[in-house]
Amino acid sequence: MSDYNDQDELAARRRNKLKLMSFDSDGKGFVESEKPKETFEDVAGLEEVKKKIRLNFILPLQQPELFKAYGREAGGSLLLFGPPGCGKTFLARAVAGEIDASFVHIELQAILSMWSGQSENNLHDIFEKARENKPCIIFIDELDAMGGSRNQMRQHHDRMLVNQLLLELDGIREQNEQVFVIGATNTPWYLDSALRRPGRFNHLVFVPPPEETERETILKLKLEGKPVHSLELARIARETKHFSGADLEQIVKDAVEAAMERMLNSGNLEPITQDDLKRAAKSRKATTLEWFSTAKNYATFSDANQDYRIVLDYMKATGLKL
């Protein structure tokens, strides 16, 4: 567990009063559900990412006087980007778990309902709700769906929603201490450039695919409770370079299916074998490769601010050539 994580009784009591708010199925209203239980301890690896989040999000809230000395206040925004299926959503939930904050989760379906007929007032209501429930994290998953480039938008209404988002983010900066906004996107290059100005989503954090040891841990977690036969997961992890967490989950599903097929033939409980996993891994390609190919183009040809330099560095460090 992190050194910074409050574990005292007071924190535990506060934690009980916090709530997670998400949208109902129509995306029109809030429903409350349980607060995220995940913490950074549950996030395998990503040490650099966690360090950056601690420094910008968690510590200013836990030790405000220390940060005030540097002119820093708790609050602000963070943009997580990277290939799909690499744990951006999970990471955002873990941040909420770490700082005992309410968590408003805006998903693609809710964003789409705003686009189709609902007004930008809905967005304002979300931010108001967050301000009433401080400390609060507003997590906008698939941020590009809400904050896409206004130049590419045909409808006036679409542009208004981006304007509203900008307004709310500026509101956060000026008045709303302890309201945090985390955005996540697979395609940061589609975001409106105004969203990236200081005070808005100016902390850009790259969430890469899991490393070898993390892949092993993920495989272990996904296989937990299933019948297995002397597996060498380190080997599978070694052979699944660049695979995302979602890819690894799919490999385990394929292996389970293979074992179940054998079970149907033999009538006995058949364990998942090393061969099942190996075959499943061989039959799949890392879905992150397509993302890296696109990201490389943006990093090489369209990166005046060097925002995606980190992606090229990552590719170089891991020997990924596309």
Binding site: L112, W115, S116, D144, A145, G148, Q152, M153, T187, Y190
Partner: peptide
């Protein structure tokens, strides 16, 4: 009509799978 506009909007966002 709302469903058409959702599809068109997703196309505009280049979210072809969705």
């Amino acid at each position: 009509d709302v469903r058409y506009s959702r599809i068109s909007h997703l196309i505009g966002l280049k979210r072809y799978k969705e």
